[in-house]
Design a protein around this nucleic acid. Structure first.
Lengths: 356, 356
DNA sequence: CGATATAAAGAGACCGGTCTCACGACATAT
DNA sequence: ATATGTCGTGAGACCGGTCTCTTTATATCG
């Protein structure tokens, strides 16, 4: 019965005003809870609103106030545990401050990232958190800043860009993991990442377009160099983007006459792929080969052996990014800051002690 | 330099129109690509728009067109692999049709769900996909329908509600898994779920407020009954919401003088918790106890032994839900449908054959 | 060559809120 | 009794698009 009333047009302040026999302005004051209205009239308007099932049109509200109450988040891949955890951190921070979150996926592709950013700007989000797919292309991010929209970079920094960033201490993390491996007697160490690359090999660290990966490789290389090990880039591999690619990378690495004895996985997805590769090759961890992965993902603690990992505290990173963005939204004049969240090595059972 | 131009006010059609020396209406026609405009003027407007870096205000656009191009998704917990996979399916379907997605988390709590739904309706989403936390409370969902907003339920159905739903074939899935266990000689089977419950035990299946869980339990019970096993509810346990709770549940189950020989986990998170519990109790799978989990999660294929699972094809479910919603948005008069996505048992190594 | 059809551009209402300003009523001050 | 102030309400502009209706310029036809 009431179902068939007016299936189409939504109830507006004007409708409520008419029903309560007051002006639109007064009804709006009550419904938007601003200005001053007498208690009597307030009640009358509230009653009318309830009877009509009035729901404010947030779009209209946003348009006149200029604030949408939404923050936009552009991530590489929500399916990746790293990002879904980060998103939870961001969401929690946002909710606490009364903001809501729109998530967009870039699939780690620059074009998708650009259009996602454009879209969110178009929706007039109050601020933006972006995980830039490439740190060497940031015109679109400069547009964001020029448009006056607060921006926080996540996980990866763009030094040339005058924007806040929340990242892990990737260099230190890689250093700690690498030192640990060397301390356990390893001398031939490989680093495997999922970054796209022309050739899979690597000649120039500076060319890595993802700052997090670049810093990790730099840390990795610096430790090898400081330990006096030759040709530190020899076992650095990119392109482990899917299981098949990873199988190829691992097979190739291990068939070397001087095969690496330990593998460092750049993220938990790569780590999982490496684990599966080794499993399918019938190799035992850590007897045949040792490994360390980034991120305390689900699977790392239930394998045999459990995987030694670099714990990234992603939830905190996300929360921090959210809080930082909100601070910037609410009181704009704020100096640019680059926050680093410390990581720690969690030693489990995937690294062997060798050579003594 | 250009940075300091006008850090505040955004460029509007009126600005572009002035720059191109045409009327606002004409500029709008070009920028919104509707109506007819001569090639010459089109070029002039486009040039002006490019020079001024015009970005359309989607809010304003939505307000006059009445369409936002956004579909809202309310899930239980994005961090759960089940939902993040589903969200990808939904997003993919949405993107293909030119829609974008706002995600909101309910944390499986009714109040949070209600306010998320309200929020999204307020934002004037074109449609809504909801994973109802409880199937016995749906006033808020009826509001949605009454407001004329297309709605698709996900994973769980509400029979009383006249809305589309996409679910798994939970009853059949549970039946298949249970039959398999019985076929392997198991006679004492436990079902463990994360649903909140007053007591953890269970006296009345009808009281389970999550239809997916209820159907699974029904399937489970029906097979036990048909196999002539006594007291089928004896080993059904709810409340495995975190590791500690799960440890308690498992310890209690297994300390029974007639302890179950196989455990059925209601989702992959519960499955993981059970696995860890068993591990910490020093029990071996499947020698000491067998288990089956729902969902082909990451971790299930790298454990020793790998876990036998009920594969839910969640991505397809999400995609289907997205497509269904979009169909309903674009051509409203459509009969209500309840779609079921079939599941299949993937036998790996976590179930022992016993008793013969 | 004038009448009519048609294409292109302009003027302005509208969406549903917010918010400024003006106005009337009543209280207090002088 | 008149001036001043405050409070509560109403009228209407505004946000930035879309879209209808009107006007103007050009083309087609008899």
């Amino acid at each position: 019965m009431e179902d068939s009333a007016h299936p189409k047009r939504a109830v507006t302040v004007a409708d409520v005003a008419k029903a309560a026999k007051v002006s639109k302005a007064t009804a709006a004051r009550v419904l938007g809870s601003y200005g001053v209205v007498s208690a009597k009239i307030t009640d009358r308007v509230m009653a009318a609103a309830a009877a009509l099932e009035y729901r404010p049109n947030e779009l209209a509200r946003s348009m006149s106030t200029g604030r949408s109450g939404i923050i936009g988040v552009v991530v590489g891949d929500i399916e990746n545990a790293f990002f879904s955890l980060a998103v939870r951190g961001i969401s929690d921070a946002a909710r606490l401050a009364g903001f809501n979150v729109i998530i967009a996926n870039s699939g780690e592709e620059l074009d998708a990232e650009k259009s996602a950013v454009d879209l969110l700007i178009g929706k007039r989000v109050d601020g933006l958190i972006v995980t830039p797919a490439r740190c060497d292309s940031f015109d679109h991010l400069q547009h964001v800043r020029r448009a006056g929209v607060p921006l926080v970079l996540f996980d990866r920094a763009v030094p040339e860009l005058d924007a806040d960033a929340v990242t892990g201490d990737d260099r230190e993390a890689a250093i700690a993991a690498t030192r640990y491996l060397i301390g356990q007697g390893h001398r031939r160490l490989a680093y495997v990442s999922a970054m796209d690359a022309e050739d899979g090999g690597l000649t120039d660290i500076g060319r890595i377009s993802n700052s997090a990966v670049r810093e990790r490789v730099e840390g990795f290389v610096s430790v090898l160099t400081e330990a006096g090990l030759p040709n530190p880039l020899r076992y650095v591999r990119l392109g482990a983007t899917n299981q098949q690619q990873t199988d190829g990378v691992i097979k190739h690495l291990l068939s070397d006459s001087a095969a690496p004895t330990a593998l460092l996985a750049s993220d938990s997805l790569v780590g999982l792929r490496i684990f599966k590769s080794l499993q399918s090759l019938g190799l035992s961890i850590p007897k045949d080969v040792s490994m360390i992965s980034f991120l305390d993902a689900d699977w790392t603690s239930v394998t045999v052996p459990p995987i030694t990992i670099v714990d990234q505290r992603v939830y905190e990173m996300g929360k921090l990014a959210g809080e930082r963005l909100i601070a910037r939204i609410e009181r704009t004049p704020l100096a640019v800051e680059r926050l680093r969240v410390s990581t720690s090595l969690i030693v489990r059972g995937s690294v062997a002690t060798i050579g003594r």
